[in-house]
Design a protein around this nucleic acid. Structure first.
Lengths: 233, 233
DNA sequence: AAGAAAGTCTTGGCATGCCTTATTCTATCT
DNA sequence: AGATAGAATAAGGCATGCCAAGACTTTCTT
């Protein structure tokens, strides 16, 4: 209840964003530890900051049990995520910054983007709904629609869909993908799967590639409404 | 000598920038008081910060005598000024932000602009040399060429030149000028001058205007090489 | 199911950066 | 020399981070 409006700082925004993503991965309270790992801080620091965020009304924190965002907190997180993804797209589209570098840049700019500039950018881009990595951009009123997607890890031979999304966390990975000409929007068929979590042989837009390791976890495809492929092993 | 490289913060950059502009107004050391006023801080804060800037090798500070930027300090100041003016121009040109608002926005962004983004923006703009208010933009290697200009305050009837520059400090003033269609690049003739520091009757691009008060101090004109008007009263 | 070990979280003390106010010092003007 | 304006210092606050010590919880063992 004691929501103090307009208390923001880069740190507070980063915490909110991190809690948001961790919380939506598995819908359960986020642990201090998980947060510390994600933010690359010590648990001590996180613990102290959580107390403050709670006082600010952005989270509800049950000691030793984890935190959840309040409505206010979620709003803040989505604002920052909107900033981030709009900026990523803007940097890529308008300034032709390579997509493996937009993330780090946006990470800083997201905290200083004014509402006015946000609007100008969104308008310039035609109110886009996804960023260069395929991540959905929250709308101006902070609605976020996540399409259901599946990571390549869960696919089996014969599955076929559109490569729509890839984690923006690892620039190397992004650079590799664009070098290979594998880009969101590409049509993807699974040809063969090696056993024991081995690589996947796929074709993307007609060209064959062998993808393994972290790539399988980072890349996600969307199936068409009708064709719902089924995983088993 | 004890220049610690890469120590930057928004505060440090703001101090450097402020010292740079105050120092170049009248070529003499900048007083703690003058700085405090410009930065809207107490002299106590400024005094402490100057000690630190001195230790960082950005200024040389003679207690009770004022400060001057070192080579390093000047470099930092010019970098920030370059950022600021490039951003102002970019916001105005590429995003059509009204020119009375670009200043405040740039004031924040200037501190977080990466070298890479700076380059992309400069390239996009075609390596421009002046910002929307006519302030010169330091080049990539931090050369700044200030053309000699004269404020309207010093003009007399008959003088004629090009309106090239206006202070970006006051949004109201900028809004007023653009409402009147008075924009940098305009051809300006002085028709009449009221006595006792009164207003000036001028024509800009053929339209007559009466300009007085702060406007006369904020607006500057450039004379053509040959036509050097002379002031007297 | 009790107790110990392992894992997780909080607390408290400390550091840094930058600000404020109150006080003291210096320089200069008369 | 004394008044006064300007400048420096001291002491304290807030935000955010760190580390180390201790408290709590979960899990493992028997």
């Amino acid at each position: 209840m004691a929501t103090k409006e307009n208390v923001r700082s880069a740190a507070i925004e980063d915490y909110s964003k991190a809690i948001y993503t961790l919380e939506s991965r598995a819908d359960e309270p986020v642990s201090t530890n998980a947060l510390a790992e994600r933010l690359e801080l010590t648990t001590g620091s996180v613990s102290g900051m959580l107390k403050k965020l709670d006082e600010l009304g952005l989270i509800s924190h049950v000691p030793y049990r984890g935190v959840r965002l309040t409505i206010e907190g979620r709003k803040l997180a989505l604002e920052v995520i909107r900033h981030h993804r709009l900026l990523e797209l803007y940097l890529a589209e308008a300034l032709h910054m390579p997509w493996d570098r937009v993330h780090d840049e946006a990470e800083v700019l997201e905290h200083v983007l004014s509402d006015e500039l946000e609007e100008l950018i969104a308008a310039k881009l035609g109110n886009p709904t996804v960023d260069p990595h395929g991540d959905p951009i929250p709308s101006a009123d902070l609605q976020l629609d996540e399409h259901p997607t599946r990571s390549l890890e869960s696919l089996v031979p014969g599955d076929e869909g559109t490569f729509v999304r890839v984690s923006d966390a690892d620039p190397e990975m992004l650079r590799y993908l664009s070098d290979q000409g594998i880009l969101p929007g590409g049509r993807l068929h699974v040809i063969e799967r090696q056993p024991f979590g081995g690589p996947l042989l796929v074709s993307v837009d007609g060209r064959e590639h062998t993808l393994g390791g972290g790539l399988l976890r980072a890349m996600r495809v969307e199936f068409e409404p009708s064709v719902v492929g089924e995983a088993s092993a």
